[in-house]
């Protein structure tokens, strides 16, 4: 009699625990959706205000996730720096990884380099098509910098990577996913002396731009001890197609 009593009590306990666990999970999932907005019982009518609230909530949530991802990336970089500092077998691999990251443009880079500023000219002196800075002007300077051994190049805040296209969109220049207007500050990290000499080469890109009489304002390339180049900022849409083999 006693035995069957305890067994029944145990079964009761298990039943209640299972039910309470499932019930708790259901409630918290629903709570999550209600907090995000939109998860209402009567959702028959399209309610502009609630849809707008939901969009705002989802946007805030995305922002939060971006912050989190950014924070985690920082932590990963820190840990990798630690691994390199500790030495050993991992350090070599981490060093290669860091080089690959700089090449891919996914991390910000700080180091010595050069800076050159290109601004549009004045309308009164020359024809319209000539006085604005074009995509090919920027491309020639960027190409020259890479050819001279730059590790990282950025135009204003846009990092130039292997997949960054530079082309004109009306009066502005599109660099990757960013639309940039003048003045264009081109910064490069690398052997600063070599980079400066390459830009100043007679017949080089800056010389050509100056000699065309287009009225563009082109600063002399300045060697800097510390140049900060931001990481490539990915557009919000994921890359389509393309898988790593």
């Amino acid at each position: 009699m006693k035995m069957s009593d305890t067994r029944a009590a145990k079964r009761k306990l298990i039943a209640w625990t299972v039910v309470c666990t499932v019930f708790g999970a259901m409630m918290s999932i629903q709570y999550h959706d209600v907090v995000l907005g939109g998860a209402a019982l009567w959702s028959g009518l399209p309610d502009v205000a609630s849809v707008y609230a939901r969009v705002a909530a989802v946007r805030a949530y995305n922002q939060e996730l971006y912050q989190k991802a950014h924070h985690m990336n920082q932590q990963i970089l820190q840990l990798q720096n630690q691994a390199i500092a500790q030495g050993g077998q991992m350090a070599d691999i981490e060093r290669q990884l860091r080089a690959a990251r700089i090449l891919a443009g996914t991390v910000p880079v700080v180091g010595p380099g050069v800076q050159v500023t290109i601004s549009d000219g004045k309308m009164d002196k020359v024809a319209m098509a000539q006085f604005i800075t074009h995509d090919w002007d920027l491309r020639s300077v960027v190409n020259e910098l890479f050819a001279a051994g730059a590790d990282a190049v950025a135009i204003n805040q846009a990092r130039v990577t292997a997949t960054t296209g530079i082309f004109c969109v009306g009066p502005v220049v599109r660099v990757g996913a960013m639309h940039l207007g003048p003045p264009f500050v081109i910064r490069a990290i690398g052997p600063s002396g070599v980079l400066r000499a390459a830009l100043n080469l007679p017949g080089g890109p800056l010389d050509l731009l100056r000699s065309q009489n287009r009225g563009l304002t082109i600063s002399a390339p300045i060697e800097e001890r510390v140049i900060k180049i931001p990481a490539y900022e990915a557009p919000l849409t994921p890359l389509s197609g393309g898988e790593t083999p």
């Binding site: 306990l13 209640w16 625990t17 299972v18 039910v19 309470c20 666990t21 499932v22 019930f23 708790g24 999970a25 259901m26 409630m27 918290s28 999932i29 629903q30 709570y31 999550h32 959706d33 995000l36 939109g38 998860a39 209402a40 019982l41 009567w42 959702s43 939901r54």
Partner: peptide
């Protein structure tokens, strides 16, 4: 024990971050 289970369930729901599509949330209600 069931109270403990309830908190475990709540924790799971909050932690796993499952989102039901909007059109199904009425059924969960």
């Amino acid at each position: 024990v069931p109270a403990f289970g309830l908190f475990i369930g709540l924790g799971i729901g909050l932690a796993v971050n499952v989102h039901l599509p909007v059109q199904y949330s009425a059924y969960l209600s």
